[in-house]
Design a protein around this nucleic acid. Sequence first.
DNA 1: TTGGCGCCTGACAACGTTGTCAACGGTACG
DNA 2: CGTACCGTTGACAACGTTGTCAGGCGCCAA
Lengths: 341, 341
Amino acid sequence: MREVARRAGVSIKTASRVVNQEPNVAPATRRRVERIIARLGYRPNSVARSMRTRRSEMLGLVVPSIRNPFYPAIARGVEDTARAHGRTVVVVSADRDPEREADCIALLVDRRVDGIILGSPVVGPAGLSPARRAGIPVVAMNPNVSLPGVLSLRIDNAGAAREMTAYLVRLGHRRIGFLDGIPALLRCRERLAGYRSGLQAAGLPFDADDVERGDFAYEAAYHATQKLLDRQRSLTALFAGNDLMAIGAIAAAVDRGLRVPEDLSVVGFDDIDLAAMVRPGLTTVHQPNYEMGALAADLILNPQPPSGPLTRTMPTRIVERQSAGPPRGRPAPLDPTRPAA
Amino acid sequence: MREVARRAGVSIKTASRVVNQEPNVAPATRRRVERIIARLGYRPNSVARSMRTRRSEMLGLVVPSIRNPFYPAIARGVEDTARAHGRTVVVVSADRDPEREADCIALLVDRRVDGIILGSPVVGPAGLSPARRAGIPVVAMNPNVSLPGVLSLRIDNAGAAREMTAYLVRLGHRRIGFLDGIPALLRCRERLAGYRSGLQAAGLPFDADDVERGDFAYEAAYHATQKLLDRQRSLTALFAGNDLMAIGAIAAAVDRGLRVPEDLSVVGFDDIDLAAMVRPGLTTVHQPNYEMGALAADLILNPQPPSGPLTRTMPTRIVERQSAGPPRGRPAPLDPTRPAA
DNA sequence: TTGGCGCCTGACAACGTTGTCAACGGTACG
DNA sequence: CGTACCGTTGACAACGTTGTCAGGCGCCAA
């Protein structure tokens, strides 16, 4: 910039004014400086600017892994909103390790990001203290433990899981298995609880043997489904705690010669992009992932009054595709989405 | 840091030495400063450090969209390698728009990233000039146009597509359709050329009506497949220019009552994570995505001698799953992966 | 004892920007 | 004609680090 100022015969400050489109620069001066800038191909140094203004123009996004198909949609929502506000996004994968997650947060704090968005954090309040100390706003999406004082975006996992269970019941299913995720994760427990409460509401017994752990992952779910189907042969439907597991369950079912949904209905949770792509299309609980990412970024960039609600619950809905149908020997009800009259 | 130094009764410089683990600090002093640092929860300001050292400890990654299932694996490869070198990654999505891509590159240059990795760039050499001017190393993965002087990672698209075509021929297929991507993209043209050359090698005619445009996207491929199957009813196999289109093609085939692979074989290209998850599992050309991302980051962080090769071609191989089989009425050959004797 | 050497340490400048403030010239108004 | 005000401009400091350099101190060998 010094060079630009020198060549234009103005002070550095005036060059800075032109670069930042500040007012109070004579039109002739402005044009002259702009010409020099264009000729020199000068680009301002964001690092120096960040140092001076104490704003880095960057947002940090912490996720378990960007390679997990659940997170790219969120990341894109964050990125688009961030970009609309002139920010860029630093993405870090913490592999659901609380310690690594805390490291990532500290790292982002060191980089002085303007805000941190946590996608499914497992870290406790202590892990956030660096951010708090630095005064960096944080938004948590589906945090695993309560983070006092932190703006959180949630969904009603238990309620949605209960509804999905009711949906399967309305289709005619009486033996419904459940693929559990990682019990340490709150939303897994909530979804399992919703499943149980859905069974109970329908007057169906809960059998712990109908549940198998799939670790929220494709591979584990594949094997868990094999085990479950070996053990509980009368299951006509399987509720997977997330879509990735549902897709693994379908693969396992198909690989043992079952047809989905004719021999086994499979439903998931999350409505990741893949859910609509696979065949049979996955019936699942839709969760507005892109929008949640966008909202999270928005909440950071347009700070809320501190008096506002600290938790926002996003709406979910069941999206019906082809992976769930009536059990064999039972005709399809007219409209399984409506509660029975 | 000033505060740390003051409390420890040392100069700022000595505090800096302790923070950076530099030698030539008396053990007692070091311990004292470390204690103060821990007590104050002091964390160094990376922005100021970057300004001074002129290294930002960040890598930039430009992709069409992080939400495209092809890129997360690359992103994770980049991230893991970057992290092993103490770097973080800034991800920007440019939606295959050359202008936006150039903007993204300029943005990253302004941020003084230590290197830029371009995933499937469509930008021309001019878009890279800011990086060149700033002396920021660039690695391009499958660039769309030749970028003179830029280290590039490629695969042999034409060769792999030819092999895949030959594979289908060995399975017994004689009428093989092709789902083209975006003709403006070099790798689409290369893959189409490989398909044609594969047909030719087998003595099969090329029919332009066997090709339909799927735009490298799921939705477009779904409709393109419908059109193609309406038009060319004798097709027994379909070669999609990438996996996303292959998955769309399978969906289209299934939705019109066809079985894959019994009624129609479908193969893809890329071997994205999903390819192994869907059923039928997708037979496709494996491309080492994670490894390419990791290598790209490595090439930036361990600069190569300028005399080295400017283009590296990564190996590919066909991975056989279940989406391709012999056409109806033809028994499976013993081993379709081996060229016919 | 003295000179030299190596280990510690700190003062100072610099990185490239922006915020603060003061000064200057011109114009409008009293 | 004087004064107040506005638009324009620049000098200077500051942001929080690290690189450079010089100085002090203790130890060892001559």
